[in-house]
Design a protein around this nucleic acid. Structure first.
Lengths: 126, 126
DNA sequence: TCCTTTCTTTACGTTAACGTAAACGTAATG
DNA sequence: CATTACGTTTACGTTAACGTAAAGAAAGGA
């Protein structure tokens, strides 16, 4: 009696098409159970989908998201694997922090542009 | 005696190909002067290129970057235009702030994953 | 039972953002 | 003066991330 979702449940919830969800499965990002031929999604599948879509909003490729999801999945068992995973994680972190700087800069410029617009409007009213 | 750049100057500086830069021009994002047939880039062209590439890192499409660059360029002269520009700006800001949240969340999770990895490593050493 | 919904697989189509190659001009350099 | 470096246009190719359409299975309701 566990929570499950149909493909169109998830499609509705996240505002994507079923085609998109099947496509992610083709790419190995999702592996739903089956009931006969129908796909049955677990809460964990749903979380993965959320992560993929968040990655998309951040401009990540599906392959990049796949890597992240895979990271979360396998804790890794031996030292070599763990060390490689850590360096992968730190790589992603560095990348995201660069992105934070870009975001901050662009927000600053937009704010600046907004001020100029507002000033120009005030000028028109004068 | 103003500062100018050749296409390969900019390509080198930003780590892209000349094809990429010409492609941006095709799309109307850049409009370098010409010396005969050769393209001559001004500091302002260079800035535009910087904005485009930053947009790319943030996952923006070229069309989206084009819109932003166009915004910076034309202050707009009448009230209607200014008001529309302001609403465009605020739209972008909202979008970027959502992206900031996504970034923050993902960084948090990565940090968490890192901690787990480090703990697992410590466990192996024990 | 028939109809409508929801699902399936298969497969070709599309768009953005370039890559790559051909074929040619020009300019400086050994 | 021939070669090397850098530039040009034109045009076809490629990859990611889906869209779209066809054709059919299964299940629940009127």
């Amino acid at each position: 009696m566990s929570i499950t979702y149909s493909i169109s449940d998830l499609a509705r919830e996240f505002g994507v098409t079923t085609r998109t969800i099947r496509f992610y499965e083709e790419k190995g990002l999702l592996n739903p159970k089956r009931n006969g031929t129908r796909r049955i999604y677990s809460p964990s599948d749903r979380t993965k989908l959320r992560l993929i879509l968040r990655g998309k909003r951040l401009g990540l490729s599906l392959d990049a998201s796949a890597e992240i999801i895979l990271m979360y999945g396998s804790p890794g068992n031996n030292r070599k694997q763990l060390e490689k995973l850590i360096s992968t994680i730190r790589g992603k972190q560095a990348e995201l922090k660069r992105q934070q700087q870009d975001l901050k800069a662009m927000l600053g410029e937009l704010s600046n542009a907004e001020d100029k617009c507002l000033a120009a409007l005030a000028e028109l009213s004068a």
